[in-house]
Design a protein around this nucleic acid. Structure first.
Length: 694
DNA sequence: GTTCTAGAAC
DNA sequence: GTTCTAGAAC
């Protein structure tokens, strides 16, 4: 049976418009239908019932009928959440059959625009008066879920402004009846973590270049165009210059040796939970170091959860100099305190007490003497305090987290069930404390007797457990750290991870695989090449197993690896000038012994089988050799990306469109001829012969 | 890193 | 039934 002959070969489509009232759905449909050569039917829930609003069932029924008549269909209703969309996606089965594709066109215009349009419109009909329209739009946006290909769409197109909408109209208007559009997800802003981390990105651009007076706008991402910031529509606060901001260090992960992966989950989850309660206030996780693992983990996990990066982000800098050095205005900072609430120790606690001077100690003493793990105490700073007048900090919130370090009080001996509970409690207390300062500022003059300070009875209890903990430590001896998932470090590497190491130590025993060797490096073909050309330049030096082990002392080595890699690129391109390459390292390698990937960008290989493979070469997890070299020279080490990004979406390495499965992705990249993303075309990250299309 | 496999998802 | 994912073993 030839299916194709049943219906004249026309490719029908169902297009779901997705957007709140006033986003321009009906206008979109009208514009396309006005000059399209394809038969369309617009299913509009607002008028389906003889010009009056109808329901979903009526829309479905009419859509099915239109499809049977051979028309393509616009579903003109809000379709904001997944559930609302699901039945329309099934139309491809009910109505037409396999030749019907379902598309989404997402109208992500700013809430203000939608509100003002729907106010104007409803003004005419006398339906929704101004304030009510705003409330309706806001309410709807709160339940919004962006569509994903996995829901069953074959194509998704995101529009953020009038120009995007105009392009989309053109795309559908010019689509002839026999044509189809490429599948995939297009135009989604902010797809990778790079663009969601204003703090870090600004810092990398050299903070010194940011004027100290820079307002918050300068350090906030632009990506929040997309409506999450509609809540503070109450215009009362919109005028204020800087949203209230809490800067906080990661609790318990430094001296207290708490597992950073677990900690990052807890940070992201509690932040996500609190953001809605905080109005327009912001939460900023701060760390002193560039290569901070906790920052990159949190950043990646927050990005995966689509948390508004304008209101929760990470920042590299000194927490006591955020304004003067980092250009970031914060009015409240958290301190990773000790249980005695005393200066000293090291790290954040020492530097905050030092920067604040005796004022902080006195103000702290007035509120509490000690602190129980999991609790926080809010301390207002007098205006005489240097942190207050130089950095604009009005409150310090001391927090005590759980401790996993046997040399510190109250060690939990790796009891992470308890540890996680306490850490969660600690962040909750911290954010509640911050919330109380936010409320104070907007209402009452002062007064926070929040239940965060400790009472004397709990202190006694705490001292008891602490003594016991110390005693039990003496018996139990050393801590066996189960960090790193047991894969490496503590005990050593699994046997399969040693293959490169073995070759690097004795290249002469592996002549059959070694392509080239010197005192410093060996070059081999990757045993499971992920592209047409894929070789590894392996360092021979022992104990440099990954990017994280590379320091200034290895600059010569990294340079040589780069040069050898470049030589192989030249050799391959002499054979085939159309090959395009990148040279780079995996942020967290699976195999021991530092190795540079020299890989062509076709990714034409049966060995490329899963998400991890793909993302390890095409996301920020892949650190270009040129950048690594520059970072090691300038800051003594290379930045590394968290493994969390490996679980992210599958995106084309050229056009960045997203695809639901590896096989769909692979069929897309076989034919995608878009230019490579802009950042790859800079500083020779991408190596192509002149005249090649890149 | 790969391979194998169970079972979830389609 | 087939495809895809995630986890365990190596």
């Amino acid at each position: 049976m030839e299916m194709e002959t049943e219906v004249s070969g026309e490719k029908q489509i169902v297009v779901l418009l997705i957007g709140p009232p006033g986003s321009g759905k009906s206008t979109f449909c009208d514009s396309v239908m006005k000059s399209s050569h394809r038969p369309w039917s617009r299913i509009c829930q607002d008028i389906i019932n003889n010009g009056k609003a109808g329901n979903k069932a009526q829309c479905l029924k009419m859509a099915t009928e239109s499809l049977k008549q051979g028309k393509s269909v616009f579903i003109d209703r809000c379709n904001l959440d997944r559930e609302q969309r699901s039945e329309f996606i099934k139309l491809q089965l009910l109505g037409g059959g396999p030749h019907v594709q379902v598309h989404a066109v997402v109208l992500e215009l700013s809430a203000q625009v939608c509100i003002s349009r729907s106010v104007k419109r409803s003004g005419h009909e006398g339906n929704l008066q101004g304030g009510r329209a705003a409330a309706v739009v806001n309410k709807m946006l709160r339940s919004k879920e962006l569509p994903k290909l996995t829901e069953g769409f074959s194509r998704i197109l995101f529009c953020y402004n009038d120009a995007d909408v105009e392009n989309a109209v053109k795309t559908y208007t010019t689509l002839a009846p026999m044509d189809t559009l490429p599948s995939g997800s297009f135009g989604l802003k902010n797809p990778d973590t790079r663009s969601t981390q204003p703090g870090i990105m600004n810092f990398f651009k050299k903070v010194t270049a940011v004027p100290a007076s820079s307002s918050i706008e300068a350090t906030t991402p632009k990506a929040h165009e997309n409506t999450e910031d509609v809540l503070p529509v109450s215009p009362s606060k919109l005028g204020s210059v800087v949203p209230t901001t809490l800067a906080f260090p990661s609790i318990s992960t430094a001296d207290f040796q708490f597992d950073i992966d677990k900690a990052s989950d807890i940070i992201v989850e509690t932040a996500e939970e609190f953001l809605p309660k905080l109005g327009s206030a912001r939460l900023v996780l701060v760390d002193l170091s560039h290569g901070s693992k906790i920052l990159s983990l949190v950043k990646a996990k927050a990005s995966l959860k689509n948390i508004d990066s304008a209101r929760f982000f990470t920042f590299v800098g000194d927490i006591t100099k955020l304004h003067s050095q980092g250009g970031l205005r914060c009015n409240v900072i958290a301190n990773a305190a000790n249980w005695r609430l005393k200066p000293g120790g090291g790290g954040v606690n020492a530097s905050i007490f030092k920067a604040a001077g005796p004022d902080l100690e006195a103000a702290t003493r007035a509120r509490a003497n000690t602190l129980v793990p999991g609790k926080a105490v809010v301390v207002p700073l007098p205006s005489t305090c240097p942190l207050h007048n130089a950095q604009g900090i009005t409150h310090v919130i001391h927090v005590l987290g759980p401790n996993m370090n046997p040399n510190r009080p109250d060690c939990l001996n790796n009891d992470y069930t308890k540890g996680c509970k306490i850490l969660r409690e600690a962040y909750t207390s911290l954010f509640e404390g911050f919330l109380s300062t936010v409320e104070d500022q907007s209402k009452l003059p002062k007064r926070n007797n929040q239940a965060t300070a400790s009472d004397s009875e709990r202190n006694k209890k705490y001292k008891g457990t602490q003594d016991m903990a110390i005693a039990s430590n003496m018996k139990s001896g050393t801590v066996d750290d189960a960090r790193d998932g047991g894969k490496k470090r503590s005990k050593g590497w699994s046997s399969w991870a040693l293959a490169l190491h073995v070759i690097a130590m004795h290249p002469e025993k592996h002549e059959n695989v070694v392509l080239e060797s010197s005192d410093d490096i060996v070059v081999i073909n990757d045993q499971y090449p992920k592209a047409r050309k894929h070789v590894l330049v392996v360092a021979r030096q022992e104990n440099v197993d990954g990017l994280e082990d590379v320091g200034r002392e290895n600059i010569k080595l990294v340079e040589e690896m780069h040069n050898v890699g470049m030589k192989w690129v030249k050799r391959f391109q002499d054979e085939d000038a159309s090959l395009i390459f990148r040279l780079g390292y995996h942020s967290v390698p699976s195999m021991r012994q530092l190795h540079l990937h020299v890989i062509s960008q076709d990714f034409e290989s049966d060995h490329l089988k899963n998400k991890k493979h793909w993302n390890s070469f095409t996301t920020s997890f892949f650190r270009d050799s040129v950048d690594v070299l520059e970072e090691v020279k300038s800051q003594g080490r290379a930045n590394v990306e968290s493994e969390a990004v490996l679980k992210g979406e599958l995106r084309c390495n050229r056009c960045r469109s997203a695809h639901p499965t590896i096989s769909k992705l692979k069929s897309h990249i076989r034919s995608c001829s878009s230019h490579f993303p802009h950042h790859l075309l800079q500083t020779s990250r991408l190596l192509a012969r002149p005249g090649t299309s890149n």
